[in-house]
Write a protein that binds this DNA or RNA. Structure first.
Lengths: 211, 211
DNA sequence: GTCTATAAGGGGATAGAC
DNA sequence: GTCTATCCCCTTATAGAC
């Protein structure tokens, strides 16, 4: 079960783009790591932007698959959100370059704008649909009284920051909190986000101790 | 009060590095935007890494100044954390490229490792001291019973993700939640983070409604 | 302190042989 | 589908005139 040439290229490119960014990666480097000459890359992908788009769309597809499963269930809103967070964290943990690639993509909106390649436009649509779905669930949760009346877009931004960023934080994160992708760190991240959503950080003030 | 040549260069470089990243920015672009020829840049900064380090250290200095003021006060731990969050958000809001520059720096640990230039090493030390200070406050808060027994490093990662990332999210963030640096958006971000710390997202279940 | 000129190398992308 | 060779542009950095 050797990977096809195309998948091998995508694997290599995902790791390189995540580590060094769009501008920092040369196609020569990608091609040779995949066992090809530089020019042969252009037979599989017509441009650097198209390659990046294909890498990005594949990552988003994996996340979409897992999160949609959590959000499809017609259960309690709390459980939907919890499972979506768990699904997102698990996907990011199984594909270490993914988190950094996603955040880099957000930052590099010049080089990887949807107009640069059709693959980038496809990834853009996929992400937009996923976010719309999460927004709908939170909005319904507020309407049903299960969630405080928070700002939904701001809540989604917090969710991204609290789940995606730590898995993208590399050496900095490891120095701060130890191995990022260890089973323990993954479990701690789930507890951190779920606990924060449910209770916040502060300890409830026991009855009779109100000042 | 025209900026000195050095400060003008730093202003231009901060904006460019934040927008396109370390590898994506050419010194020619920076020099000409600052009104110099490319080679003249090397008179002020001996290398690209040194310039980046100077930019980064200046950003961290501003953040340190504001956060230390919030953390120095010998008040209630809750107030220290709230004021530190508010100070961090205000600093990021007053210096729009800062958030993106900081997160890019975390990601680009290859190009901007402390060994590349003394300015980068200085920035590294500054950041380390700031984080240690925040960690101390949270740890004391837990010991005093004001904060739930959370993992301190994970809490700091969440704090970074929930405060820095949204101000770095650029076009993506604007599409999701509107203008990032409007007074309203800044106020909403403060409410979001402080509310999350204090209560979480979920609505407390009213008495007698426990299932 | 700024400039021109140059060095030495890498970038993305294309043409055409095999 | 992979290769070699090539095009043209940009990169960091240095040398030396003014």
């Amino acid at each position: 079960m050797l990977p096809t040439s195309r998948e091998k290229i995508l694997d290599v490119a995902e790791a390189r783009f995540a580590q060094r960014g769009y501008a920092g990666v040369g196609l020569r480097e990608v091609a040779e790591a995949a066992g090809l000459g530089k020019s042969s890359l252009f037979h599989h992908f017509p441009s650097k932007a198209a390659l990046y788009g294909a890498v990005l769309d594949r990552v988003l597809e994996r996340i979409e698959l897992r999160m949609n499963r959590a959000l499809e269930a017609s259960r309690d809103v709390r459980a939907q959100i919890s499972d979506a967070v768990i699904g997102l964290i698990d996907t990011l943990a199984e594909d270490p370059p993914a988190a950094r690639l996603l955040l880099r993509t957000v930052f590099e909106d010049d080089d990887v704008s949807p107009g640069e390649a059709p693959e980038l436009a496809a990834a853009d649509r996929r992400l937009e649909a996923l976010i719309a779905r999460v927004a709908r669930v939170i909005t319904e949760g507020i309407a049903a009284g299960a969630i405080r009346p928070i700002s939904v877009p701001d809540a989604i931004q917090t969710l991204i920051g609290a789940t995606v960023y730590p898995f993208a934080s590399g050496e900095f994160g490891e120095k701060l909190a130890g191995e990022i992708f260890s089973a323990d760190a993954i479990a701690r991240r789930k507890r951190e986000v779920l606990g924060l959503i449910e209770h916040g950080w502060l300890r409830p003030i026991p009855r009779g101790e109100m000042s």
